[in-house]
């Protein structure tokens, strides 16, 4: 069974349009500077577009000079992803105080009704004498994904834009991917998800995991292609009150946090000594972590919110 995508694609706006919009968003913090130097007036005669080059400088280019690849709506293939993009995330552990807003937002927006959230905030302590910290953990969207390697039916797949997704219409529920994933991020629908009529009748696309979930198949974090598509940040990123997450594009070398601040990815990782989880396994994750050093938050504060045995709030059933 192939995902039903036609209707969904009709409502999809052209990719380039969104890409640029998104690019503008990432450039927002720099735009002011550009104004100050008066550069934006220099090409007054023609409509201009502000873009960020790969080394992070902002420039104005005539709109006509921007090559529109003319991606037709129908060209979009959920198995291929957005062309010429490569999504990455940075998680700043120094800022995480276990507010768990990422989790509740994810649970809500993906209509998670099971007992295991797709994003979890682990209480970590690497060794006895080192300090504990909070580690939000979601699918790492590995470039060498262990889950994709073992899937017998190509139900879980890696796209060119770096996102690893699941085709719930194809998954046979063997759970081999769950055994293979070293980050324990995959969640199985052991029973009927009961997500309510609206969700259950929604048109399925792998681009929006959980809409609807299916009994007997696997779910996990989808890096929110449905939000990227709208030029917005993934739910967890925008929900975090502490700007722990930044999301962006490796090719643009830019990531943006929930407050709209953009950073040059390579510089951020260099300055803050970014790392990836279990690098030694060779899974090549797309999620980077910034170590919990020089913390402005108090670890203890997070304990208040800590629920060892729960990650999804259950609606009260009368």
């Amino acid at each position: 069974m192939e995902p039903k995508k036609d209707n969904q694609q009709k409502s999809r706006r052209t990719f380039v349009e969104q890409g640029l919009k998104y690019g503008l968003l990432t450039a927002a913090s720099g735009a002011l500077l550009a104004k100050v130097f008066g550069k934006s007036e220099s090409l007054d005669s023609e409509e201009t577009i502000e873009v960020m080059s790969t080394d992070g400088t902002l420039m104005q280019v005539p709109a006509s000079a921007v090559e529109h690849a003319h991606e037709k709506k129908s060209d979009y293939n959920p198995r291929e992803g957005f062309p010429n993009r490569k999504f990455v995330m940075v998680v700043d552990l120094a800022k995480c105080r276990n507010a768990k807003k990422c989790q509740s937002s994810c649970n809500k927006n993906h209509y998670i009704t099971g007992e295991n959230a797709w994003i979890k905030i682990y209480k970590m302590q690497d060794s006895e004498k080192s300090a504990p910290y909070w580690q939000p953990t979601l699918c790492q969207h590995c470039d060498e994904p262990a889950c994709v390697k073992v899937c017998p039916v190509d139900a879980t797949f890696k796209r060119r834009d770096g996102i690893v997704l699941i085709d719930n219409n194809r998954c046979i529920g063997c759970r081999f991917c769950m055994a293979a994933c070293p980050y324990s991020v995959r969640v199985f629908n052991w029973s009927d998800p009961w997500q309510g009529d609206t969700v259950e009748q929604a048109e399925y696309t792998p681009d929006y995991a959980g809409i609807p979930s299916q009994k007997g198949t696997v779910d996990k974090c989808d890096f929110c292609p449905h939000m990227i598509d709208k030029g917005e940040l993934p739910h967890c990123v925008s929900a975090c009150p502490n700007d722990v997450f930044s999301f962006g594009d490796l090719y643009e070398d830019t990531v943006t946090n929930g407050s709209g601040q953009s950073f040059k990815l390579s510089k951020l990782l260099k300055d803050r000594a970014g790392y990836r989880l279990m690098e030694s396994l060779g899974t090549e994750p797309s999620v980077y972590y910034l170590p919990p050093s020089d913390r402005i938050v108090d670890f203890e504060e997070g304990l208040e919110n800590y629920t060892e045995f729960q990650s999804v709030d259950k609606p009260q059933v009368p």
Binding site: E115, K123, Q310
Partner: peptide, 13 residues
Amino acid sequence: HPFLPIEGVPEAW
């Protein structure tokens, strides 16, 4: 015995 701690799920799991 996964690599990351088992948290956020009912104890019975």
